[in-house]
Simulated assay, not measured.
Amino acid sequence: MCARYVLEASEKEIEQAYAAKMQEEYVRNWNIAPTNKACVITADHPDIIQQYHFGLVPHWAKDKKVGYSLLNARSESALEKPSFKPLIEKNKRCLVLVNSFYEWETVGKEKLPYRFFLPERPTFSFAGLYSWWKDPASQEWYKSFTIMTTAPNGTVGQFHDRMPVILSKEEESIWLKGGVPISDIMSLCDPFPEVEMDLHRVSKDVNNVRNNNSDLILPENSN
């Protein structure tokens, strides 16, 4: 599962990386957690960066609490799930913008967090799916997303049996493009090359979602 990640680049850096304009106020976040608003680029508006809630709420859901159970979509079975299949087929696909993400090592009773990042690509994206849900009480739209996951590469596999689908620049365009055979779309959901990824251990302060500052991403011995 990918349930915690980081987007802390400046607004200008993000816009330049994706040739897109930020549509809403952007706030750096070193500990993005479920229900938080975060930056996405959707297939229907590839030239703007929008803010959606982390945790997918399908349009048919009774309430938005379901989002906690739909943080991730397993790529191997997504086409079998009513929450995900229509979104893939109708191109409700998105890029989830990222600078790094966290996974944990369990040592005895401790959970030790590690930060994973791409040294040659400071801002990158996860493959995502998005949905709009109308709150029956307020009649307001709740826009949300889920992160596609796949088998881990050797780096992430030391800590978890899943990893987010990380897209190359070329794959980002294909993921958002309409009219591409679904088999080609799903073939993008493979493990990212471990040689292009690095990691370091970070402070256990990451474990508490209330903690949110730039120190969280520093190597533990630098804090």
Rank of each mutant, 00 (worst) to 15 (best):
R93C: 08
W175P: 09
E24R: 12
F145Y: 15
S222T: 06
K143S: 13
W141F: 11
D190R: 15
I88H: 01
A61E: 04
F192H: 07
N207P: 00
I185E: 05
E110A: 15
F192I: 04
L71C: 07
R93T: 15
P219H: 02
F84A: 05
G128W: 00
P219Y: 02
C39P: 08
N213F: 09
H160Y: 03
M22L: 12
D198A: 15
D44E: 14
T123Y: 03
G178M: 04
Y52L: 15
E110S: 13
K169L: 10
E220N: 10
A33V: 07
Q23T: 11
P164Y: 00
A43Y: 03
T35Y: 12
I174S: 08
S75D: 04
W60F: 13
A127H: 01
R115N: 14
I32A: 09
I147L: 06
V40S: 08
W60M: 07
N153T: 05
K21F: 10
R210A: 09
R74F: 09
S168H: 02
R115Q: 12
P82C: 04
N223T: 04
S83G: 01
V206L: 01
V165Q: 04
N29V: 07
E24T: 13
L216Y: 01
E13D: 13
W104E: 08
F54N: 12
P119D: 03
V40D: 10
P119S: 00
S77T: 15
V202K: 01
L129D: 11
K85Y: 06
G67P: 06
